[in-house]
Simulated scan of single mutants.
Amino acid sequence: MCKVKSGDGTPIAYRRSGEGPPVILVGGAFSTAESEAPLARLLAPRFTTITYDRRGRGASGDRAPYAVEREVEDLAALLAAAGGSAALYGVSSGGALVLEAVAAGLPVTQFAVYEPPYATDPAALRARAAYTERLTELLARGLRDDAVELFLSAMELHPATIEVMRRSPLWADLAAVAHTLAYDNQVLGEGLIPLRRLSAVTTRAMIVDGGASPPVVRDAARAAARALPRGRHRTLTGQTHEVAPHVLAPVLEEFFAA
């Protein structure tokens, strides 16, 4: 892996593959550079793909206190390493980070986001506040396993499914980056779509959702697309939040190549 130094000196580890216009892939909760590798391989024949470990994960460093601005600076360092500008793709909370980066004025040529996990109903903010309070408490007490379970429960995974995951080798990897759940949570701000900030973004954009995802998720994707002056919306039939790379890749390829 290669490394760049972010604005605060934190080393950010990344992988580069393929040839063509650069595209940086930004993962969501729990993800590392390896998580986005299948999508990167599919895009590599036409694009230079950059996957990276967000701060606090994998081979990247970390520095307290956390602030969303530091993750935006991480992306700025990667954009510089990519040649000064690039397209961005982000999934879930990584998509929200992409929106923050573009709104901050980073040199992004175009961007695509898959299902940013914003709320569209202010009533949902009460549940979000309770989640934030509980997550903060668990992480402060070092209860990483419980923090992971809390997040998965908030994602509406069935308790039996979570129990199976607890007994799998994957669980240790999730617990190792449990502290970054607080980072993803902060990226979402108050939880509602930042409509005013997005309305000032003039970069060409595409917001994507899955046709089999819950209505609230799809509503948020459509609302985000409408808020962006050059935004378009796309639904992938039959897909859920765990979008299949081979379904997503041709859609991104078409958009980024235009």
Rank of each mutant, 00 (worst) to 15 (best):
M1W: 00
K5M: 15
S6I: 00
G9Q: 03
T10A: 02
P11Q: 00
I12S: 02
A13G: 05
Y14V: 02
Y14T: 14
G20P: 08
L25Q: 12
G28N: 08
F30T: 03
A33V: 10
E34F: 11
S35E: 09
S35K: 07
E36Q: 15
L42K: 06
P45G: 03
F47S: 13
T48M: 06
I50P: 10
I50H: 10
T51Y: 08
Y52Q: 05
Y52A: 14
R57Q: 14
R57Y: 13
R57G: 07
R57W: 01
A59C: 08
A64Y: 01
Y66I: 04
R70K: 15
V72T: 04
L75A: 12
L79K: 14
A81Y: 10
A82G: 08
G83P: 09
G84C: 07
A87L: 01
A87M: 09
L88S: 01
S92T: 10
S92I: 10
G94R: 00
L97W: 09
L99S: 05
L99A: 13
A101N: 02
A101D: 02
G105Q: 00
P107C: 05
V108G: 10
V108Y: 08
F111S: 03
Y114P: 03
E115N: 01
E115F: 03
P116C: 01
Y118K: 05
T120F: 08
T120E: 03
P122A: 10
A123Y: 09
A124W: 15
L125I: 04
L125Y: 06
R128G: 03
A130K: 13
T132F: 15
E137N: 11
L138C: 02
L138R: 08
R141H: 14
G142E: 15
R144V: 01
R144Q: 08
A147S: 05
V148R: 00
V148N: 05
E149V: 13
F151N: 07
A154R: 13
M155L: 14
E156S: 15
A160F: 07
A160V: 04
T161F: 11
T161S: 14
A172E: 00
A172W: 00
D173L: 13
L174W: 08
V177N: 00
A178E: 01
L181D: 06
L181S: 02
A182C: 00
Q186Y: 10
Q186H: 10
G191T: 07
P194D: 10
L195P: 07
L195V: 12
R196Q: 13
R197I: 04
R204N: 06
A205M: 07
G210A: 09
G211Y: 03
G211T: 01
A212G: 01
P214N: 07
P215G: 04
A220V: 11
A221D: 02
A221W: 00
R230Y: 15
G231I: 08
R232H: 11
H233V: 13
H233I: 13
G238L: 08
H241R: 13
E242T: 15
P250Q: 05
E253F: 02
A257R: 12
